[in-house]
Amino acid sequence: MKRDPQMTMTNQTGFIMSVAYPAVPAYSRAKRSRESSDRVSRSDAEATIANEQEIRAGLSQHLTRLWRYAVVLSHQRDVADDLVQATCVRALERANQFAPGTRLDRWLFSILHSIWLNEVRSRRVRMGQGFVDADETLVFDGARDTETHIFANQVLHQVQALPEAQRTVVFLAYVEELSYREVAELLEIPIGTVMSRLAAARAKLAASAGSDKMEGSAS
């Protein structure tokens, strides 16, 4: 029973999406640049430089989260390294396009996603490299000690085995804990599409999880 996401949307006017996150800058200034940026008067160029320093500090703070997202997208660590690097270059280049007061991490995630979509992924497909199975590349060893870890690892693999469009929304909504609206904005897709992808992903995960184990664990 497939439903048209657009239908869902038009039928659900009056639907208010909760905004779960306050719009505070996500980056601290603790790591701000080595040189002092307390300049009294700033020319445009100086303002740009100051902004780049803030972006740099924010990048530094979010590197591991960006890398994790890149792994979720690409399934490959080395591609993830490169993706994060390209994201840093692009973000610094566009430092003056970042709107102060908005979430820097969201902005960085959207840059990474668009580089993945428009540059890396399409090139890899054209080059006929294709993609490797999640299980093949995601050898995240360790974490074998306890049952919790084994289970966590299973969840990781199940999500990573989802089609890209679905695992992306699952990751952003449930791991990064973005609201539907934030996911939609980051991926530049309608909220209805976010909803239908999540629904499809969860139906798939539910089917493989087996209801016995998970009863009542929703929160």
Partner: peptide, 30 residues
Amino acid sequence: RFLMSSSLPFRDAFDPLLDKAPKAKLEALL
């Protein structure tokens, strides 16, 4: 109830990935 069974501990599952990130290398690249 069926859909609810997919409410898995997603955060816990993906948190170890943060530790796997090559932080020093990424810092150097930046």
